[in-house]
Simulated assay, not measured.
Amino acid sequence: MPALLRHFPELLRGVAEVEVTPRGVRPHRLPAWVREQFPDGQLLSMESQPSGVRIVFRTAASAVELVTHPTRIAYVGTGRPRGRIDVYADGELVVRDVLDGGDRFEVDLTSGQTAFLPGEAHTTTVSGLPAGHHRIEIWLPHNESVELIELRADAAIEPDDARLPLWVHHGSSISQGSNALAPSEIWPAVAARHAGVELRNLGLGGSALVDPFLARVIRDAPADYISIKLGINVVNLDVMRLRAFVPAVHGFLDTIRDGHPEVPLLLISPLFCGIHEETPGPGAIDPVSIGTGQVRFLATGTPEDVTLGRLTLQVIRRELRSLTDRRAADKNLHHLDGTSLYGAADAAELPLPDGLHPSPGAHQQIGTRFAEYAFTGAGPFAR
Results as ranks from 00 to 15, higher is better:
residue 1 M to P: 14
residue 1 M to Y: 05
residue 1 M to N: 08
residue 2 P to S: 12
residue 4 L to A: 07
residue 6 R to E: 12
residue 8 F to T: 10
residue 15 V to A: 02
residue 19 E to T: 15
residue 22 P to N: 01
residue 23 R to D: 04
residue 23 R to G: 00
residue 27 P to T: 10
residue 28 H to E: 03
residue 33 W to G: 00
residue 34 V to P: 01
residue 41 G to I: 01
residue 42 Q to D: 12
residue 45 S to H: 11
residue 52 G to W: 14
residue 53 V to M: 08
residue 58 R to D: 07
residue 61 A to R: 14
residue 72 R to T: 14
residue 83 G to H: 02
residue 85 I to L: 04
residue 99 L to C: 08
residue 103 D to L: 01
residue 105 F to K: 10
residue 108 D to A: 06
residue 109 L to M: 15
residue 109 L to S: 15
residue 111 S to T: 15
residue 112 G to Y: 12
residue 112 G to C: 09
residue 114 T to L: 04
residue 115 A to L: 12
residue 118 P to M: 03
residue 120 E to M: 11
residue 129 L to E: 03
residue 134 H to S: 04
residue 144 E to A: 10
residue 148 L to N: 03
residue 150 E to V: 04
residue 150 E to M: 15
residue 156 A to V: 14
residue 161 D to I: 05
residue 161 D to V: 08
residue 164 L to C: 03
residue 168 V to R: 04
residue 172 S to I: 05
residue 186 I to L: 10
residue 188 P to W: 13
residue 190 V to W: 01
residue 191 A to E: 01
residue 192 A to M: 09
residue 194 H to V: 02
residue 202 L to D: 10
residue 205 G to H: 00
residue 213 F to S: 10
residue 216 R to W: 14
residue 242 L to H: 09
residue 242 L to P: 00
residue 243 R to S: 13
residue 248 A to T: 03
residue 250 H to K: 08
residue 258 D to W: 13
residue 263 V to T: 14
residue 263 V to L: 05
residue 266 L to R: 06
residue 271 L to F: 07
residue 272 F to M: 00
residue 276 H to E: 00
residue 279 T to I: 15
residue 286 D to S: 11
residue 297 F to M: 11
residue 305 D to N: 07
residue 307 T to Q: 13
residue 308 L to N: 14
residue 316 I to H: 07
residue 317 R to V: 06
residue 336 L to E: 04
residue 341 L to W: 01
residue 344 A to T: 05
residue 348 A to M: 10
residue 352 L to S: 00
residue 354 D to E: 10
residue 354 D to S: 06
residue 359 S to G: 15
residue 361 G to I: 07
residue 362 A to D: 03
residue 363 H to L: 06
residue 364 Q to W: 08
residue 364 Q to P: 02
residue 374 A to Y: 05
residue 376 T to H: 15
residue 380 P to G: 02
residue 381 F to Y: 07
